[in-house]
Design a protein around this nucleic acid. Structure first.
Lengths: 138, 138
DNA sequence: TTCAATGCAAATCCTTTGCATCGTA
DNA sequence: TACGATGCAAAGGATTTGCATTGAA
């Protein structure tokens, strides 16, 4: 961060903390609400600017989770390994199963297409076990 | 469509044609421009309403292609098989390599998580072969 | 004839931007 | 001290909505 002439401010530290502490995926508005609890003067535009900065630095990933909740974007600290977002289109639950075969898959796709692969985002819509049960007996 | 009490209108037919004829992924504004050529009085809100209707009926898929072009959404006629969108984050090219192992993958994930899987969207950002060459020799 | 769909305009939601001020390096 | 970041207000773009009218069944 310092390498690029960017400054480490109170707000950036704060937002990094909010994202670190999150136990689920947060949209910009939620990040704002959580940040405001710790520092009431923080402004929405700072949230958007900072999220964009973090994204440009590849520190976070931007998701949309199958648009289950409209067009909101969700953010998470860039995970060390590729992973999958399994979104229940009924209740909105998100699971993240492990993807064991990602490495081989990646190699094959690179060979087939000539692309060098960076960020990947796999979002799958479906019904979680609970919602399937509920659907059977309404 | 008729089964759900929905009507088959001139506009819906028109938009289905536009989507059928598309050779690349279209965003709402592009669908609007193409539709207006064939029927100048069609309104933007009809585009949005109809795209949502088609989406609800699982006739089309909504994509965002790694947000390469901001927050636009792209639409495509729901393809019969799972497929991958490989997006060049430099020039915006989109490739759609075949995914041979989708069936096994799907079965394993369903077993591991209890989800029943519906729509899947795998979007991978990277550099296409051309942009990699350009990056090497600026 | 009926009720869903359209066109239109206005509203809404999310996000970005210009500018004066603040504060990190 | 210098210049990057913030707060604020205002603009911007994409999408949705209320309502009168149109048109498919």
């Amino acid at each position: 961060m310092r390498a690029k002439g960017l400054r480490i401010t109170r707000e950036r530290r704060l937002l990094a903390d909010v994202l670190e502490d999150a136990t689920e995926h947060l949209d910009a508005e939620t990040v704002f609400r959580l940040a405001r609890r710790r520092s009431p003067r923080i402004h929405r535009s700072t949230i958007y600017r900072t999220l964009n900065t973090f994204k440009d630095l590849d520190l976070i990933d931007e998701l949309d989770l199958m648009h289950v909740d409209g067009n909101r974007h969700y953010y998470e600290i860039r995970p060390p390994v590729f992973h999958i977002h399994l979104v229940c289109t009924s209740c909105g639950e998100v699971q993240e199963p492990e993807e064991r075969s990602w490495k081989e898959w990646r190699a094959r796709i690179m060979k087939e297409t000539g692309f060098s692969l960076g960020t990947a985002r796999l979002e799958v819509g479906g019904l979680c076990a609970d919602c399937r049960r509920r659907a059977r007996r309404p």
